[in-house]
Nucleic acid binder design. Structure first.
Lengths: 361, 361
DNA sequence: CTGTTAGCGCCTTCAG
DNA sequence: CTGAAGGCGCTAACAG
């Protein structure tokens, strides 16, 4: 029926199939059907401050409905000079630590009518940089970087450059992690939390510890290790080199580290894994090797990820309000423009003693 | 230094602050710096088939690098008539079932240079429809709908309309779930899987069952219940009304359903929860009420989500290759244009017997 | 209150 | 191989 908008009335023989190249309906189509100008249609259909008479408004709405009109956000973005898209860059969306934070971010984004695209770096800092560039290309209104920074200076510089370019283009930036970039950041107090944990574990009577410490270059892991060491030191306990086992910041990393611990035959009563997923992996490794938690060894983690809920034995950890942290980061990124100096929101951790760490008599 | 491109040489007193309204660098800036035309710059910077001399190419690249140029994808999208964005609509991204599938989709998307935006319906079918409209507005190249359909006809019609409009605009669509929409779909064989599970559980000696059946209106839940019933029937065992407990398709839904089961004092040896997260919740409820799994009651789930790995006792379930299903859906959505009839990829489930279901002597 | 007219940043025929 | 010019769909002054 509808002539697809073509003026041409002749169809070449080659075009017999007439593959009805589908075209999305444009604002112009709506305006024509409603018998009004483009601007009027635009004003009623999109949040303009300008007033339109009830009658015209009705006609436009009616036409839009009839045609199933949906605005082309790209055209809007280029015309308005800004998009409704925000980027969320995480190390691993399948890791409950990140998916909880992501849930918080998404909730706030939704309230602001923003679309969030999730970028999964798969724990690769290079990809992280690449994603910021990508989001710049998308003219994202904001990017939220979630996850630890690293010790590598060169990496940080490259990321900082990319971030600067992004902000120069008018984008907002927020981080959840160490404050290493000139941007608003939500900072979990890793060091203090680990220190408090150490104190409480000593309080349970433990004296001989091992730490599954994660990657040496990852700041979150380092901070937690350092805090834990502080806490032990305060009780006159030192942590030797051989009591620290580095590895991946993942469940499998925890598993491997625990196996290494067993292999070394280290005589400890308590193991601190610098995050929960590692602790979960460690417990699995212990189980596989006939080491019972907490009877034979106590285990503690960090984060209090939601999946701990169904773990047996329940895991001692340092609670972080993950979803709230996401909400906070989103507020920093979407809320009122900050002053000149980046803001810092400190988030304290809270030690939660559960079944996985037993009291030594 | 750079005069921000303004011709005006006078700054009003009111403008003393000179808030250097930041502007992203455009292709024109690059072209000017390189001393070439817009078209030439465009040709070298973006994947054009046209050839450009090495010298000019070098100059353009150099200028782009110096300026930190990144193309405005919105402008590209409006000019090209298509974007590099794909939408992934899931019921709950924090649920491991969905995050595993999402990981598969993202991997393939990345290979295609596509950006995926994740839309979380929070298990609300209305939001699902809204998201498809949103993605149409984004002129997404494709949308992938992951998650069960429902019995509600009116809901389905509205979704179908939205999907049709999306395709009319040139978008591709793929689903992971029942084939209720005229789109390519990846279909897990829920019914056959549940049937096989029932057979194997009967093989273990169980005769008295209960099913935590999820929402009555959710097709995936219904199919699994029906399949399970089939399997039992084949062994001459019937499933009465009071042996079926409906509830939410979540961990908490499983918990509540199991409590209800306990409250009813039903005498069963084996409980089938129609998905793993419900089974996990059920086990937690049993534990909380002093019912030991599998000594007092056996429990089985469906899906084989990755988090089962650290569950004790390990859970009997029907394995689905979740990440692969995501990959498959992405291939359907991004790969070569389908023929006229929607394609269907059936994915069989495989029963995996683990510790949570014991053999009755 | 409504319509006309420039752009927004980029791509792509179409001439040179 | 290069440049000039029109157009993508929409918004926002600017007139009426």
């Amino acid at each position: 029926m509808a002539s697809a908008g073509r003026v041409c009335g002749l169809t070449s023989l080659a075009n017999v199939v007439d593959r009805q190249e589908p075209r999305a309906t444009r604002l112009e189509d709506v305006a024509r059907l409603a018998g009004v100008s483009l601007s009027t249609a635009s004003r009623v259909l999109n949040g303009s401050t300008r007033q339109v008479s009830a009658e015209m408004s009705r006609r436009v709405l009616e036409a839009a409905r009839k045609l199933g009109y949906t605005p082309n956000v790209h055209a809007q973005a280029v015309a308005r000079g800004t998009s409704n898209l925000v980027g969320l860059v995480v190390h691993d969306i399948a890791d409950p630590y990140f998916s909880s934070i992501a849930a918080g971010v998404m909730r706030v984004a939704d309230e602001h009518g923003l679309v969030v695209t999730v970028c999964n770096t798969i724990r690769d800092p290079d990809r992280e940089i690449g994603y910021v560039a990508l989001l710049r290309a998308q003219r994202a209104r904001a990017v939220i970087l979630v996850g630890s920074r690293f010790t590598d200076k060169e990496l940080l510089t490259r990321l900082a450059n990319e971030i600067d370019a992004f902000r120069r283009g008018g984008g907002r930036v927020a981080c959840v992690s160490q404050r290493k970039l000139a941007a608003d950041t939500v900072l979990p107090e890793n060091r203090a939390g680990a220190r408090a944990l150490a104190r409480d574990l000593v309080g349970l009577g433990h004296r001989r510890f091992a730490v599954l410490a994660g990657p040496e270059t990852m700041l979150t892991a380092r901070d937690r290790l350092a805090g834990f060491r502080d806490g032990l030191a305060a009780a006159g306990i030192s942590l030797e080199r051989d009591q620290i086992i580095h590895g991946a910041f993942t469940r499998d990393g925890g598993y491997a580290a625990a196996e290494e611990l067993i292999r070394r035959g280290l005589d400890v009563t308590c193991v601190f894994a610098v995050n929960d997923v590692m602790a979960v992996g460690a417990i699995a490794a212990f189980r596989a090797h006939g080491v019972t938690v907490p009877a034979d060894v106590s285990v503690a983690g960090f984060d209090d990820i939601v999946t701990l809920r169904d773990l047996v034995p329940s895991l001692t950890t340092v609670h972080l309000p993950l979803e709230e942290m996401g909400v906070e980061a989103a507020r920093l990124a979407f809320g009122p423009e900050p002053g000149d100096t980046p803001r810092l929101v400190r988030v304290p951790g809270e030690v939660v003693l559960r079944e996985s760490t037993r009291r030594l008599t």
